[in-house]
Design a protein around this nucleic acid. Structure first.
Lengths: 218, 218
DNA sequence: ACGCAAATTTGCGTGTACGCATCTTTCTGC
DNA sequence: GCAGAAAGATGCGTACACGCAAATTTGCGT
């Protein structure tokens, strides 16, 4: 069930996706994102321009994907993996913080600077938070038991929305401090900002968990 | 402060916006939405195609706007207007239900049928829920006192997300019952669906209200 | 190995979104 | 009223997203 499609086909698909990601990132960094056309990315990745849009539905998605790749699945997995002893609220909050703080790629800093600068990229970056909604909903549903799938969806959507708010705030302060001070200061850690922003949702998560527990014991 | 800009200029602007809305709606209803190009709408409204995109940033927005017009402001106003005796959760939920249930326009039924049918219109319709976020945030902030504006933003974003979830569900069941039964049945009232979907957020709204109250008495 | 079925890539055509420069309309202070 | 400023409308050019159908590649049973 993990990888339903296992074969050369799926392998090549991921390779193409990765090639497009890498090409987009490299070109954006060396030319500046405004001087990169999708034709350039496609050519650098060795596929047709039309194929690019089979993988990404906007020019910015490929660039941003370098920083957000697979994040959705990792958040969901992290939530599902926390032991049952940990409360739902803690599980969700810490999973989100972990996955959004973990920096793997080199050149991530330069890319983030780029993202903070260009409005179109900011928009695309912000947009990626929506992707965590469905995986997260399933993970939450798994923890709540399948009593009320509605609730899990709503909570996941709310968490995603809160994360989006946090990122907007973070980008706002980052870009303004960059503009004002000339130097890019994180303006308070993203981790703290995420925790603060998610705090108002804790009561909702707790209540849902209690309800589910009660329902289960009945 | 209500209408900062009061003059012939703003008046004409609103007239143009309304003309585009009306033209888009009329054409979509009589030809089917796939047979309407933005050039047609612009021509029918008596403006240049370029001007269309100064008002709406996608072809679908004008069509959908006929049903969502001004909803954002009305929801916010409704929240702000409920007496302080009513709890925040009730104020928000009922304001949302009222404004999403209120049907003014004639031909709303036909338009909704259209929206449920065409994927692109569904997407645009769903997208309009995001617009209530900022006005709602201000209304909530007004009720919570200006202690923690963060909280208001997060709660408003969560409510908007929950409304989006409800509409998605509603459209899903509506379209499937339309496909299956041949007749469009509301498949349970939208009002009930909204109340159910917003229910999980009530604890968060209550908690924020309590916190604000405590903070104020201190 | 072979061939059919399914998935993917590609080229093409159309409609769309939007930056920019320019022209027209409206607003403001005098 | 009037002259300059500000805001909006328009035309043009470019890049982009995507439906569609033909061509190519991969998977699988035999």
């Amino acid at each position: 069930m993990t990888t339903r499609r296992t074969g050369l086909r799926e392998q090549k698909k991921q390779a193409t996706r990765e090639a497009l990601r890498a090409a987009a990132l490299r070109l954006a960094l060396e030319r500046g994102p405004d001087n990169v056309r999708v034709d350039d990315i496609a050519e650098a990745a060795g596929v047709s321009p039309r194929t690019y849009n089979n993988y990404f539905s906007s020019r910015e998605q490929a660039i941003v994907a370098a920083v957000t790749s697979e994040r959705e699945a990792r958040v969901a997995a992290a939530v599902a993996d926390r032991p049952d002893g940990v409360g739902l609220a803690d599980a969700v909050v810490e999973a989100v913080v972990d996955q959004f703080t973990a920096s793997a790629e080199p050149g991530r800093e330069a890319l983030l600077l780029l993202i903070t600068t260009r409005p179109a990229l900011r928009e695309a970056f912000i947009g990626t938070t929506a992707a965590i909604e469905h995986p997260l909903a399933e993970a939450v549903a798994g923890r709540l038991g399948d009593g009320e799938p509605h609730t899990a969806r709503v909570l996941a959507a709310s968490v995603a929305a809160a994360v989006r708010v946090a990122l907007e705030q973070w980008l706002r302060t980052t870009v303004s401090s960059a503009t004002a001070g000339g130097l890019v200061v994180p303006a308070g850690s993203l981790a703290d900002l995420l925790r603060t922003t998610l705090a108002p949702l804790r009561p909702a998560l707790d209540a849902a968990e209690q309800r589910a527990r009660r329902h289960r014991q009945q």
